[in-house]
């Protein structure tokens, strides 16, 4: 046969009748749900009242300005970013301890991980919040920070940490989230370190590298590359989990949404909009991470 002939075309992928039936079924379900809400509950939709809480028209300045829910979204984003940074530090240190030769370090890190993984997040956050806000913060003098000082009351501080008046509160939220997510990152890092073949340790030790150098130069770079996808997933989980700190009065998106829902009584609109905001935030990050991952794997070879 002629070697230069082109390969046969791959079979075309087409939607079958069954697929259409499935889609139709899902659409019917959605329509029925809409019908129930509209006609049976006789719900009075009013999107504009809630949208006003995202962006409102300011009469005095004659411009559209951000309102409560957008502030909440910003706080959620700030919470997530700081908590991720902190949780990553906790995760790398504890993850290394999990694989350490030192028994004390192993017990400490194992205890931390098991404690957090086997408590409901809500329970953990209540305990931890009351502990740090009543014990640790006074000790560190966080409560006594002069909130009108130049260092604190400037635009940069507002961008990074939000309203200075709410800073101790915000910090408590960040710490709670970081402690909580840190345990999961610890396990991801541990798995990453252990996924690096033992021969890598041996080869690095054999050319006279210290344990620290082996970890820094040889093991962690390889482990990090492997754990980036689960780490990205954990970051998105953290954004969603941040809703839980609304229960300790951190004024992030969910907390403010509760207030908006109760003042406007527009429960459906509020939560659907807030849900959409979370979805857009999380899905954007998912797309971004996916893109970064594809780029990284393309560049490798």
């Amino acid at each position: 046969m002629d070697r230069t002939s082109s390969p046969p075309a791959p079979p075309k992928k087409r939607l079958s009748l069954v697929d259409f039936a499935l889609f139709a079924g899902v659409a019917a379900l959605l329509l029925y749900a809409g019908y129930r809400v509209n006609d049976v509950l006789v719900y009075n939709w009013s999107w504009s009242r809630v949208i006003n809480f995202i962006i409102r028209y300011d009469e005095t300045s004659g411009a559209y300005v951000a309102n409560l829910l957008l502030f909440g979204l910003a706080t959620t984003l700030r919470l997530a970013v700081w908590a991720t940074i902190l949780a990553s530090i906790i995760g790398v240190v504890m993850g290394y301890w999990r694989t350490s030769e030192n028994l004390t370090l192993r017990i400490l890190s194992r205890g931390y991980v098991e404690l957090i993984r086997n408590l409901p997040p809500l329970v953990f956050i209540f305990i931890f919040y009351f502990f740090i806000s009543s014990q640790i913060f006074p000790l560190l003098g966080i409560e006594d920070i002069d909130r009108s000082a130049v260092l604190v009351d400037n635009p940069m501080f507002r961008v990074l940490f939000g309203d200075p008046q709410l800073f101790p509160n915000f910090l408590a939220g960040v710490l709670c989230l970081a402690m909580f997510e840190g345990a999961y990152i610890t396990e991801i890092v541990r798995a990453g370190i252990q996924s690096v073949p033992h021969g890598q340790w041996e080869a690095a030790r054999a050319i006279g590298l210290s344990r620290t150098n082996v970890l820094r130069d040889v093991v962690l770079p390889q482990a990090l590359r492997k754990i980036l996808p689960p780490l990205a997933g954990q970051f998105i989980t953290l954004i969603k989990d941040s809703a839980i700190v609304s229960l300790i009065s951190i004024q992030e998106l969910t907390y403010l949404a509760t207030e908006v829902a109760s003042t406007t009584t527009k429960v459906f609109e509020t939560w659907i909009l807030v849900g959409a905001m979370y979805f857009i935030l999380c899905y954007s990050f998912a797309l971004l991470f996916g893109w970064l991952e594809r780029r990284a794997s393309r560049n490798r070879r």
Partner: peptide, 10 residues
Amino acid sequence: GMVFQSFNLF
């Protein structure tokens, strides 16, 4: 110096 069966390059 040590050389391994499975090379163990980084």
